[in-house]
Amino acid sequence: MSDSPIAVEEHNPALRHHFADMEQQRQASSLGMWVFLATEVMFFGGMFCAYLIYRYWYYNEFAAGSRSLDIWLGTINTAVLICSSLTVALGVRAAQMGKRKLLVILLLLTIVFGLAFLGIKGVEWYTKFQEHHIPGSSFNVDDLIKEYPQIRIDPSHQQIFFSLYFAMTGLHALHMIIGVGIFAVLTFYAWKSLYTPEYHTPIELAGLYWHFVDIIWIYLFPLLYLIDRKPLK
């Protein structure tokens, strides 16, 4: 169908029929991604709101729960994610300059970082599982009560902290898994030379998404791991 008066000069094969030109298409896609990220802010916002209230109510339990998380693994994971954001940003640059091989390598690196994050997160979760810190009938925080006699801990309130911990990191991890999946597809297409300096919007959009997921973690890390780490008297 090209009975349109906007007969395009050089018809880029990536141009979809209903757009007038590549510029309009790129702007629409990028606005779409920004709008989507706004919905994601609201999605996580609901949980941050719950976190705020309960942390205000049950500060002791939140502080104790925070101490029980492995700060080293958390820090390493933060570093891993920041590295992955860097590789994504460099990947977008490589796509802009049309460096196919570099792009593929950077995307693969991103995937590796993403998987590393998920692996470390899995180890942390598994430890929590062994420590009976999973909310539910087998929940038990006698270990924390013994370890921090200075803090008054109500075991049921302690469950609220861990409920939020698992809900927030779980939904964050789900976003990471989706992101890794997206990058796997993009790597394949990049390898097939689908992206050119004129058309690489998918790389940019996936990059935006990935940075967003990183930012969520940048908030989660201090909110969950760093509530109170001062030495106890």
Partner: peptide, 23 residues
């Protein structure tokens, strides 16, 4: 701006029923 909040709320309800979170 509204629907994602409902979505996460329902997720928390489902998680509470299925996995015994306690929010």
């Amino acid at each position: 701006l509204g629907t994602p909040v409902l979505a996460v709320t329902l997720v928390l309800v489902v998680l509470e029923r299925a996995l015994h979170l306690g929010i």
